[in-house]
Amino acid sequence: MRSAILIFPGSNCDRDMMVAVERITGRRPALVWHKESQLDPVDIVIIPGGFSFGDYLRCGALAARAPAMEAVVDHASRGGAVLGVCNGFQILLETGLLPGTLVRNSGLKFVCRETRLAVQETIETPLLSNLATGTELVIPVAHNEGNYFADVALLDSLEQGGQVALRYVQNDPARAANPNGSARDIAGILSANGRVMGMMPHPERAMGNGHASEDGREFLTSVLEGVAR
């Protein structure tokens, strides 16, 4: 299982993701600085959370044009697997590897809390291979721009095409299931070929060992085992 984690100025979940992946696979991911224009062959590229380039212009806009992202687009065009978490999701949307965009949370506040996710019925994808449709996972979010936005035609086509991977469902009865106003409660989506996934929740922050939940480990294990096959 070979993996790479990209690092941009302002990434801040790269180390947590590295530790999570290493715990699961026993192999440390390659850390790739954004100025690198080539990637060694890997089973998956992970784009971690953070505030790349200070969120200047738009979240992920500048990172999406970095040399390392050209290498990621190459990797994806050859059918390589990619996972983007939080700011990584924003970057994948800005790159065009995933459709739609993420806008400001509808409540105008940074949201940092646990969310409950339900795995959706999707097209065939290695990224959710061990997780049955309907599996629920408690994984935290921490973001200011996590409100997934697309026009109705695109939302319909994502749903019909099995590209909605994760949705927010009720967790704490005192709070809305959807933390940010995201269209159709979307928390994560897949590319049309099922090889690229973006999600707002942080599985690397739900690894047990003092974290409130261990479901992120289950999720990442599924991703990493799926792409290693």
Binding site: V103, R104, N105, S106, G107, L108, F149, G181
Partner: peptide
């Protein structure tokens, strides 16, 4: 048609 929560708050 795109919601502008900032505009709404202002």
């Amino acid at each position: 048609g795109v919601l502008d929560p900032q505009g709404r708050a202002v």
